[in-house]
Design a protein around this nucleic acid. Structure first.
Lengths: 244, 244
DNA sequence: TAGTGGTCTAGACCACCGG
DNA sequence: CGGTGGTCTAGACCACTAA
């Protein structure tokens, strides 16, 4: 047996999942040394490069560090923080991300229009390419959390309806249109909300908003969504890890 | 000849650099197909996995996309944006990051103290482990840009002086102490500045600040710095890429 | 069906670390 | 010096795409 991907779960994913669980469960505790690559090779009966790839995933997630000549170790952070950051690596839609709690969506604006210059530039389309333009407010447990101002090219993502908007666009794009979402570019800024935003998000006086500008790409390399996500800064944080 | 790392520049880095340059220079233009892995193998006389690793770097940087069964393509974004995001992947100190312009640093507070509970938790130290505590304001072209409130464990990073603070701590840690900085965990939030911050950053009324809380780790896995970076939101943006 | 990138193996030399 | 992870090779089978 040589070929891979026979199982849906890849070997390096399986190993990474196992070890991530053991770190979160404290089976491998903070600062402790993890099994050598050689040991994992034997335990899972895989080659060394496969072990390396599994460990590299956890390095990217900020959970572990590797030192040449020494070994691999659990990073010195508490489990809560570890989990927070590990989760942040996962690429999820905004509704999917909060699976547990009750999520509601109100669509306050929805039309098809021609794009202005900024939208043309961000979505890489021409002035005569129609776009959906819609505004949604998301509620978690009855409280407004974020306003989303979105543009999507009609040609690339046809068939958007109110029903789609009230549920998950990501689900529609991936499951119904069978397209693959590949990456997102984000620019985070902050500013004072205008009156409408203040009202929609039920903000107290002097509470700013965090603006997450997001361009989302399909696996074709084409941008399919340009969104300004305006968050209540009192209940929002953006989490990020950088590795050298 | 088989071994690697003989040259300081690794093969996959060299290939990634070449191709990145050609994308930025428009030799490989937006949406165009890049050479097949097979072709790069011949051109550079390397194995396929090495080519794959080089291309994967550019995928992480958000510059290109790969499609099984099709090939590898330049992402459909303008060169300016591409460069902005590619740069954001690079791990640099804040002074290093703005190499071109004139950077000034004013140290307004500097003492050694015992850490409170939050600092203990973030730096993973005990209540009796002394820490440096200092506050710096950074100026770019004469304008205040960011206030940094930093705690560093004395035991890990000895010998901090005013002179070090007025220059680059990163440089001191890496070049003088010969320690290696490996990763940073960041949490981005926003809020209304207090009077002192407003004054230090010369903020107009109703301009919020962006707070980047940053814990920086050595290659030993130990946190060596806990900083709150308070930015003027009118001139600051945080850039981030997520890949599935 | 031909050709792409994705995963995986077995084996090699290397740089770095500690005793 | 022995042992670690880092890089790299040559070769294999696989899933997916397009014609």
């Amino acid at each position: 047996m040589n070929g891979r991907e026979v199982n849906i779960v890849l070997k390096y994913e399986q190993i990474a999942n196992d070890i991530r669980n053991k770190i979160v469960n404290d089976t491998f505790s903070v600062n402790s040394q993890l099994p050598l690559e050689k040991e994992i090779m034997k335990e899972y009966n895989v080659s060394r490069i496969t072990v390396k790839k599994a460990y590299d995933i956890l390095v990217e997630e900020g959970l572990i560090i590797k030192r040449r000549g020494r070994g691999t170790f659990v990073k010195d952070i508490d489990e809560d923080t570890a989990l927070l950051f590990a989760k942040s690596r996962q690429f999820l839609g905004f509704s999917t991300n909060m699976a547990q709690s009750s999520i509601e969506t109100k669509v306050s604006f929805f039309q098809v229009e021609l794009p202005d210059e900024d939208v043309q530039k961000k979505l890489k389309i021409g002035p005569n390419d129609w776009v959906y333009h819609f505004i949604r407010t998301r509620y978690k447990d009855g409280q407004p959390v974020v306003i989303e101002y979105t543009f999507m090219p009609m040609e690339l993502i046809p068939g958007i309806t109110m029903e789609v908007l009230e549920n998950s666009i990501y689900h529609y794009v991936e499951e119904d249109l069978k397209l693959k979402i590949q990456s997102a570019h984000r620019i985070i800024t902050a500013y004072t909300p205008n009156e409408e935003q203040k009202k929609l998000l039920k903000l107290k006086d002097n509470v700013p908003v965090v603006n997450v500008e997001e361009i989302t790409f399909l696996d074709t390399g084409k941008p399919f969504s340009f969104t300004q996500n305006v968050h209540n800064s009192e209940i929002f944080q953006y989490v990020s890890i950088t590795t050298k």
